[in-house]
Design a protein around this nucleic acid. Sequence first.
DNA 1: GATTTTACCTTGGCCGACCAACTAATGGGG
DNA 2: CCCCATTAGTTGGTCGGCCAAGGTAAAATC
Lengths: 181, 181
Amino acid sequence: MTAEAAQEPSRQTPQCAAVPGAVLDGPVSHSISRVARLHRIAAGRLLRDLGLHPGQEFLMMHLWDSGAVRQSELIKAVGLDPSTVTKMLQRLEQSGHVRRRPDPADRRASLVEATEASCGLLMAVREAWGELERQTLEGLDATERTELARLLAKVEGSLCTSAARAAEADCHSPHQGPLDC
Amino acid sequence: MTAEAAQEPSRQTPQCAAVPGAVLDGPVSHSISRVARLHRIAAGRLLRDLGLHPGQEFLMMHLWDSGAVRQSELIKAVGLDPSTVTKMLQRLEQSGHVRRRPDPADRRASLVEATEASCGLLMAVREAWGELERQTLEGLDATERTELARLLAKVEGSLCTSAARAAEADCHSPHQGPLDC
DNA sequence: GATTTTACCTTGGCCGACCAACTAATGGGG
DNA sequence: CCCCATTAGTTGGTCGGCCAAGGTAAAATC
């Protein structure tokens, strides 16, 4: 297929030609993956100084917004797997950002809230997210930004209904992913 | 939303400043994160039946394209951390998708190639990626698709230069992330 | 009131991905 | 020729994230 690979055993493959044919099916998918990774790395870099790992900020933001909240509510809000949230909360609790106590009204549930100490991070995290947004959208003018937001929202909807459709098709199978669209 | 919160003033209001919607700073960033997660889940669902975990398809695609390749080349091509690639290759080798042998020309290096058995997956993986692309772009017309691709490429570029800038600023620090833009 | 069902969380296992630190081989200057 | 910086890969640790399975408590049903 690829003419250059068939013939030249020498290395020094020119970087620019490094777009393999596999990218041909799914250029946007590849782009999404790469953007996601870069975005996550950028977030991690900005969050690192605050003592947060990428992903935790979602939980903290919701806690800062909502005050004490039942863990199930939190899980529904962020749309993650319950076990993921459990472990993240265990780590956040150990690092002092979060406090948990049993719900007096329901002995199965537990209430989660951000600690007072963590509130000092609120502004810093918001600032970091602002900076992240700035870095992300740097180079796009206003109309491009709104257009990107619109398209992403549309893609999100599509992927969501796709996931729901797949889940519904597998409803008899023991598969019950965290679907929350 | 949060209608019940407003309805219950007795609820422990957050001790931190009551900020309505931390999502406000960084709407596109939030959207990117959610889309990325949904996209990865969709990819995982499509890849699961093929015995591949999400992320491995990148490696396999490159191997199918390039034949036997030095591991360092592979690492450069996918842009991942070397240790990540090492572990993924160990698992892919154990599951029979990949073969590794030492490079006779350089005793440090090792050559990686896809096994013949794995080649049966090639078409299936391409098909899966095609389906993923279809699900992702479902609901977008042609101009929207090209526009999305264009905007994503621009964002990718921005995030890349941002990362490079940050890395350069930290060049004295022991930080040397896998930057490859 | 007893039984089934459902909801809430936890644990263990696995994988992708990162960083830090390490070994080993290569190759370039004194 | 030897020393030293660079390159190639590996290991260990940590985290986010998923799935599968389990245990306990509330709610629904009988």
